[in-house]
Simulated assay, not measured.
Amino acid sequence: MNDNGDPNSLPPQARKGRGALSNRSGRFEAETREAFDDGWGSLDELPERVPTTLSIDTAKTVISYNQSPDVPFDRSINPYRGCEHGCAYCFARPSHAYLGLSPGLDFETRLFYKPDAPELLREELRARRYRPAPIALGINTDAYQPVERRLGLTRRILDVLQETRHPVSIVTKSALIERDLDILQAMAAEGLAQVAVSVTTLKAELARRLEPRAAAPRRRLQVVERLAAAGIPVSVLVAPLIPMLNDEELEKILAASREAGAVDAGYVLLRLPRELHELFAEWLRRHEPLKAERVLLRIFEARGGKAYDSTFGARMTGTGAYADLLGQRFKLAYKRQAFPGAPDFNLSLFRPPPAGGQMDLFW
């Protein structure tokens, strides 16, 4: 029997290599989808694996701007919509509802990409009114998710940024970033590139269930080590911290990251906006049934009695006793590990792309 009390309604089904258990309808849909046992053996036909499909995103611009005081950048580029890493907690899942798709399985299996992103970037950097500031690459969804290995879209974007000597910051949980060490190392030598590696847990078994297609925790620390050895300023983002699942690992993750060569660190408390609340609750009840309700209760306590509070200044860290304790623990551990902090970006080297084969003499 499912949560709605219908004996014929099927419980969410785990699929190999996928994080979401269901394909709940997005908030803009007029109808809802629900798995149902019709008595004709249809359960035997449920596929064990759900294939990934790719479609072209026809966006006319590639740089997105924001005015949020909670993030250290005002512009970003996301080459992909949807993410095959399949992280059960991903805050970007609700964005798939704008496409008429589910933030559940659709988000991690029906992907969109911008094949002309490098060309669009050139046009936007060429605009006379453009002034350089660090571009955050792959913030909504990982720019180094598995499909990037085949498409190479992120590398082409980096080529444009290197050519124009434009500063870039990257957040990823993928070892594929090592493919682009040559570009990142050259840019970092001029103060133009920094990387943050997301490390959610050091427990391989938990990571396998939470982030089914992302790099293993040990491999991510190896990425930190290799980036640092190449002279690239690398930070670690402990995100998200989930009550009673990985929050006790905060100090251990910071210590392991510092030992690997990280120069800075940050953390984010789990956020459950819109459809993500029910999707993550499904995941908890399936994978952590004995902890599920206590985890959700603690999240609500840290979010003012709601699944999510979008208030600036609180949405990343929460409020209340539990959130305050996390903040204190982070500050103490950060100080204990003596993180030196990331260096400033160099904004003085930027040169816009050439127009008509020649540099703009009046820039």
Rank of each mutant, 00 (worst) to 15 (best):
P7R: 03
P7F: 08
S9V: 10
L10S: 07
P12I: 07
K16M: 11
L21F: 04
F28A: 04
R33C: 04
E34F: 03
E34I: 12
L46V: 15
E48H: 09
S55G: 10
Y65N: 05
P69A: 10
R81Q: 13
G82K: 03
Y89Q: 04
F91A: 00
L101C: 05
Y113Q: 05
K114R: 15
P115W: 12
L120E: 11
E124M: 02
E124S: 07
R129L: 09
R129S: 15
A136S: 14
I139W: 15
D142R: 03
A143V: 08
Q145V: 07
E148R: 04
E148D: 15
R149C: 03
L153M: 09
T154V: 08
L161K: 00
E163D: 15
H166K: 05
T172C: 06
K173R: 15
I177L: 13
I183E: 08
L184W: 01
A186Q: 14
M187G: 03
V195F: 04
S198N: 10
L202V: 08
A207W: 06
R208P: 00
R209L: 14
V223D: 08
A230H: 11
P233T: 08
V234I: 12
V234S: 11
S235Y: 09
V238A: 14
N246L: 10
D247V: 03
E251I: 01
A255G: 03
Y267A: 09
H277A: 12
E282G: 04
E288N: 04
K291M: 11
E293Q: 11
E301Q: 15
G304A: 01
G305C: 04
A307V: 02
R315S: 11
M316N: 13
T317S: 09
G318M: 01
T319P: 01
L325E: 15
Q328P: 00
Y334E: 12
N346T: 13
P352L: 00
P353D: 09
G357F: 04
D360M: 06
